[in-house]
Structure formats: C-alpha cells, structure tokens
Design a protein around this nucleic acid. Sequence first.
DNA 1: TCTGGGGTCCTAGGACCC
DNA 2: TCTGGGGTCCTAGGACCC
Length: 413
Amino acid sequence: MTATILHADLDAFYASVEQLLDPSLRGRPIAVGGGVVLAASYEAKAFGVRSGMQGRQARELCPQLIFVRGHFKDYQRLGDAAIKVIGDFTPLVERISIDEAFADVAGCTHLFGAPAEIAAAIRQRVRTELGLPISVGVARTKHLAKIASQVAKPDGLVVVDPDTELEFLHELAVELMWGVGPVAKARLAEIGVLTIGQLAKTPGWSLERLLGPAAGEKLAALAWNRDPRQLKPHRRARSAGAQSAIGRKPAEQQVIRPTLLHLADRIAARLRAKSRPGRTVTVRVRFGDLNSVTRSVTLRAPISATVMLAKLAEELVCAVLADHPDEKIISLLAISVSHLEESWDLELELPLGLEDEARRPGSRLGMARWTADCAVDKIRDRFGWDAIGYGSATLGVSRLVPDEFRKLAEKNL
DNA sequence: TCTGGGGTCCTAGGACCC
DNA sequence: TCTGGGGTCCTAGGACCC
C-alpha cells in the first residue's frame, strides 16, 4: 500500500493574493476587509489577528496592521487556476473550498513519477505560474493527508510514509484531527487525553460516552488511521443559505422584512440557476444576547421563487418572535433551504409550489411572480446583479461583508 | 474570547406507519 | 383494546469545518 492521496491548501490565501498583487504589502501584516477581518496574512496572524475578528480589535492587537479592500475576482480566478494545476495531473480531484482540494494520484504515477514528486511539481507550478505559496500533504488516507498539509504549513510539503504513519500521527495534538473542535478538545482534556496517541489508547466505550456514538467511533478509527472516506470528485450541495449580521436592531417588521427579502433573493436566484428548488426552509434568529433560535418547515413541493421564500421565512421569524416576547433586539437573521431536488424542471415548480402557497390564508396565487423572477435572472445575467432587484431589498440592507466575498464561500449546487 | 458567512453532519424526541 | 418492535420523516439544537 502506497500513499497516493494529496491534500493541497493555499497558504493564507486571500492575504497572499493581496501581497502578490501589491509587492509593497509583502512581508507586512495585512488584513483583508475593514469592519470585519475576512483574512489575515501570516505576519498579522503572528499578532493574534484572526478572520472574523472586528477590525477595531485587530488594530488593537496589531497597530501597524494594514487593511486592504479585497480583490474578490482575483481570488476566484487564482483559486480556480491552482485547482486546475492539480487537475493537470489527475482527474480525481475533490475540491473542498476555494483554496483547498484532495487528489488521488494512484493512476498517474507512471506518467509523472512518485506521489511526492507530483506534490513537489504542483507546488513548483503554483509558485512559478501563479506566484502563490501552497502546502501539500501526502498520505495513504484523506485524514492523514489533511493533517500532513497542516503540519507542512507554511509553504511546505510533508509526505507520510505508510510504514511510519502511526508514529507520525500519535505524537500530534488531538485538535489537529478532523472533527475535534473546542468542545471535544475540552472534554478529552478532562480525561487527560491531549495527543492523538493518547486518544488511540482510550477505550471505545469511553469515547462514545464522552462524545456520542458517531463521533466516538469515528475518532477512534481516525486515531488508528482507519479512514473509510473515499475521494468524491463530484459532490452536490445539500443546502443553500445566507445570513446577515445586522448589529443590534429592534425586532420589527421594517427591519426584518427587507433583510429577509435580500437573503431570500440571493438564495432563490442560486436555486433557480441550477434548477434545484428545496422543500425545507429554516430560519435562524439571533437575539441581542447572541443566543439564537431556529424554526423550520418542510413543504410538500419544493420552491425557488424569491417572494415565496421570503414570505415563508417571514412567517417563521414571526413565529420565533411570538415564542420569545421578551426579546426586543435581534442581531442576525438567516435563511437556509435544504432537501434540495436533484434536478427539477422549472416549468413544474410553479403549479406545485404555488399550490402550497394557495392553501395559506390570505395569500394570492401569482403567476406573475415566477415570471418576474425569471425576468430578473435574465437581466442580471446580462447586466449584473445590481442592475435590477427588489427595491426595498437592495436599499437599506446592511452589508457588513460584501456580497462578492460571500459568493466565494458558496458551494456549487 | 464572544466574532462574519456558507456549509456538513449528528442527536434526540415525537408523529406516524406497518 | 393493549403491548411490543422496527422504520421513516420532521423539528430543534449543536459541534464542527473552511
């Protein structure tokens, strides 16, 4: 058995792109964003600057921090180009996000050499052709390849020989494992488990009691490098959503309605573009105290119409607020659509979707709405997103994070 | 460390069916 | 009518990942 799984991960991707585009930023602490840090360079991370952090806090940690507005189109272009370099070696590529992918090179070693050589070649090409640092891990399983690339960062290559994989794995900290976050790490620490080796020696029943049956079993297997996950080149998304942190706002219709319409507009347009309407609509409301509550409904027929989604979301939010009459302040609204149809003939959706709506008291059956959605989609295709839209949705909606940035995180439906 | 946005998966209880 | 058991779907919440 040889190690043929690669995990490739661009280092501090957005920040590296900025340093590539503007040489005066190289070697300096920079943050992409403004009000919120969307990404930080290694130099900034050294000061404790993290993505998601408030800009003010980041500046306190690192007074010389340079804020740059993002070049979002370049992120997409260079991320795609890096993945394409990997694709030049093997078609078995599973892209995880804009800057990260797995690949299996088992079938192409006769053409390009050993997996380690292929990994080195990928790094070399991304460096010379794109000007970006990328770290690569090579191992027998996805889990170990992923850990290897983390260990390799920044700008490194780590190959885990199958004969010594447990020696490599067992001395690492548990939180490097896939699936061990802050909560699991703390629980494991309570029973004295700090390293993956200690985890491996912990009895299965103990892990399952601590972390639940599924997580316990998974971690036990991963600790012995038994990772059953296959590479999946074509994964389809199971849900599509959008959220907006709105600061502290009163829980009132004039705040809620335009925000939900904007979110619904973004989601529904994506669903329509891929003909993947969904049956379950979930809403999340976060209150002033940062506690949040969700509410969902599952329909008989899938929907992808903007107004219908917005209306359903609004009813769910109203139900949440009715259940929490003491909460006067909301700080975030989110909508997610799941139970996505594999593929759906749009022509069929209208009668079925509206049939559902038609049963609801006080609603009007509107062919015009669906026709309008299609017209809006077409105009946006030609003239851009902001060429047309729901007036109240585009105006007065706080955009803490630019929509172009949000798009980068969207999965292909 | 209380922070932004798009996702996945798991759990537990209840409804409902056979 | 009651008791038992298995399976599936829905809902709400939570941990985790990038």
